[in-house]
């Protein structure tokens, strides 16, 4: 057994590794997805290590410096300072944590709720499907901004309530996707084979159907991540999401609004951060689609 040929995987782990290498190769074929991944990694580093990286951590904590208000970008303050004399770079970097966490929470929760609802509807079918999908469509028609306002009015402001409000209008997208995928996979011959063997419904769902639809779910989650961050920023901007002084990109943009165009740097850098995040997660999502969902490859 020691003389196993070089490219024959000798264990489950080795087989998985080989598959990963192949996937990675496909990912690297497209340099745009590599750019997306690089920016996402950068954002993650900023979100995790931000407080230790930023030049003026005291400004993140709420400290102000009235002697240095509205300083344009310089060697000392790369992104300039705002109306309170706070370092804009420090605020933007610190803002990545709030935006990414909120976006991740929205997408993860929406994906979980949507997958459960969609899988049950698609697998059970008939009146269960009918009822669940009516409800899903109803939720889909509610505008997320209005829903968020209603939740903020009913439950009060705050990040958790905002996330809850966005998830309420976000999960139906996942439910529709998962329902369609489950209905398609249900007809696959290997699912028929499992049924003929006497496999239980949970076994068929968890072993045969779900593993074959995680790819589209992950791809959608990645593509959605950028839009979720944008939604969080929009709510912060109109003042029903994250509140100042929490440094969140939408909030920073909203505060800078009154000082345009003279003090453009207070708005342009948070705006760029939002754009970059949306852009990067979309590129990453497209790259992941190429890796995980070879059927959709050109």
């Amino acid at each position: 057994m020691s003389a196993v040929a070089g490219n024959i995987p000798s264990s489950a782990a080795a087989a998985r590794l080989q598959n990963w290498r192949r996937g990675l190769y496909r990912f690297r074929q497209s340099w745009l997805s590599v750019v997306g991944l690089a920016i996402v990694v950068l954002l993650l580093v900023a979100a995790i290590a931000g407080p230790w990286l930023v030049p003026y951590p005291e400004h993140v904590a709420g400290g102000i410096n009235t002697g240095a208000r509205f300083k344009p970008p310089s060697a000392q303050h790369w992104f300039g300072t705002n109306e309170l004399g706070q370092d804009v770079l420090s605020l933007v970097v610190a803002g990545s944590r709030v935006s990414l966490l909120a976006g991740l929470a929205v997408v993860t929760l929406a994906a979980i709720v949507g997958t459960v609802v969609g899988a049950v509807a698609g697998y059970v079918g008939r009146w269960v499907d009918e009822a669940l999908m009516r409800f899903t469509d109803l939720m889909l028609t509610l505008p997320s901004l209005i829903l968020a306002m209603a939740v903020a009015a009913a439950l009060g402001p705050g990040i958790a309530n905002m996330v809850f409000a966005i998830v309420l209008s976000w999960w139906p997208g996942f439910a529709r996707l998962v329902r369609g995928e489950v209905m398609a996979r249900k007809e696959e011959v290997y699912v028929q084979a499992a049924r003929a063997l006497g496999a239980s419904a949970p076994r068929i769902l968890f072993r045969h159907i779900l593993p074959n639809i995680v790819s589209p779910i992950i791809v959608k989650a990645s593509l959605d991540m950028g839009f979720a961050i944008l939604t969080v920023a929009s709510l912060g901007f109109v003042g029903i999401g994250v509140k100042p002084p929490t440094p969140e990109w939408g909030v920073l943009l909203s505060l800078a609004r009154g000082y345009l165009p003279d003090y453009w740097w207070t708005a342009i850098f948070p705006g760029c951060a939002i754009f970059l995040a949306v852009f990067a997660f979309n590129l990453l999502g497209d790259g992941l689609r190429d890796v995980l969902d070879p059927r959709a490859r050109r």
């Binding site: 489950a12 087989a15 696959e188 011959v189 290997y190 084979a193 499992a194 063997l197 006497g198 496999a199 239980s200 076994r203 072993r207 045969h208 593993p211 074959n212």
Partner: peptide, 21 residues
């Protein structure tokens, strides 16, 4: 091509009937 689950190894495919039964 259609009758084997693409996400399962040969081992898992052949072992499955033994698990179910």
């Amino acid at each position: 091509y259609a009758s084997l689950n693409p996400r399962m190894t040969a081992h898992d495919i052949v072992a499955e009937p033994m698990i179910i039964h």
